[in-house]
Design a protein around this nucleic acid. Structure first.
Lengths: 209, 209
DNA sequence: TAGATTGTTAATCGATTAACAATC
DNA sequence: TAGATTGTTAATCGATTAACAATC
């Protein structure tokens, strides 16, 4: 998958395209024009064609886009067919909620293990995902490399665990802690899910005079 | 709090400013220049001054910004001192994780109640937050209005519950379901937390050739 | 074919960065 | 005071939108 230089704004829209196309496909829609998709998503047709043209030519003049085909192209573009794997760090409430309720496989990830320090849960399984002791993290990852570490540990452990994940060769960290991880020089990509930032943005928007 | 027309890009940075200033304050830093804050956050000094100038003049030439004062200004700008309240819809894994682990009060929200359909938990409390039956939602909100509904119900109930929240007068919906809510005409603000979109963006970034 | 719709180039718009006078 | 740093105006850069020839 070669990339020239795709802007962050475009990258952020790709999962939305994928999601909307999936819904259209489920609804039995076979083809869609950039115009109709734009109305559907609240974007201009122009923007959609411009965005997609970063990756290739997926449409057909006079016809539009085949929904199933475009969805498939997007899944490739997004790396959903790379066989990515993930491990969860911290099987507390949030980690557990993600393991039990979030369908990693629908995003192309296989969730292979969770790690925690709590001896009450180490050795058990959550939704068929084994919970291992975090002391065995390096050993495990040397045998079973992971593409992504899902960081749901307490904030005070975040930096240390992130560091260990980086040394163990993960390519990305999905960071649910409220800590800012500075891994710029490691080359590891950090994707932050800062709940507080999201709620505060909402707070701002509902507080406008 | 009067606003001219603040761009979405600026709004998204405000919580980050607040978070970084909070960390600086905890670290005992009294004053900071736009230059130093920029280095800290990975932004240009120019952008920081431009952003803040949307809301007033908070600095002092030759000195910079007083950390505590600027943090206080940002908390006002973000609406953290408006006495906002929230209710959680759906006390499953994710709802429970938010109730137990997310500190609403640190974002200026009081979490007053949770609602669910499961008779096994209705009537109990989670971290001192009462769990009520969702049938009593309208009755409750007419007595105890909420600024925001936190939507952690299953996707298939999302649209219905969102609609009921809107009719009950919430100003915003913090949407954790994977459903797209179209409330454009209601005037209610939707803030989406789409886990899958976030993971797919990460997937894209770690999959670049 | 005629109508529709793409991919792409050009025009516009908005956001970021640079520059600098004002001033603490 | 001299040095530092702001707030703001101007310049640049990038992203979005519009236009249109190509073509299914």
């Amino acid at each position: 998958m070669k990339k020239e230089k795709v802007s962050s704004a475009v990258i952020r829209r790709l999962p939305r395209y994928y999601r909307h196309l999936s819904a259209l496909q489920r609804a039995g829609v076979v083809r869609i024009s950039s115009n109709a998709l734009g109305r559907n998503m609240g974007l201009t047709a122009s923007q959609i064609r411009q965005d997609l043209s970063c990756f290739g030519e997926f449409g057909q003049q006079g016809y539009g886009y085949n929904v199933e085909k475009l969805r498939g192209e997007l899944s490739d573009i997004l790396g959903m067919n790379c066989g990515h794997t993930a491990v969860v760090l911290g099987a507390g409430n949030l980690g557990r909620a993600l393991i039990e309720n979030f369908h990693f496989e629908l995003s192309g990830f296989r969730l292979s293990a969770a790690f925690d320090v709590d001896s009450a849960i180490v050795g058990t399984s959550i939704s068929a995902v084994p919970v291992l002791h975090v002391d065995t993290l390096e050993e495990y990852l040397s045998q079973q490399p992971a593409s992504v570490g899902v960081l749901t540990v307490p904030g005070k452990s975040a930096a240390e665990i992130a560091e260990r994940l980086v040394r163990s060769g993960v390519r990305g960290i999905w960071n649910f802690t409220n800590m800012e991880l500075d891994l710029r020089e490691s080359g590891v990509v950090v994707e932050n899910v800062h709940f507080a930032d999201s709620l505060l943005a909402l707070s701002y928007m509902i507080s406008e005079e």
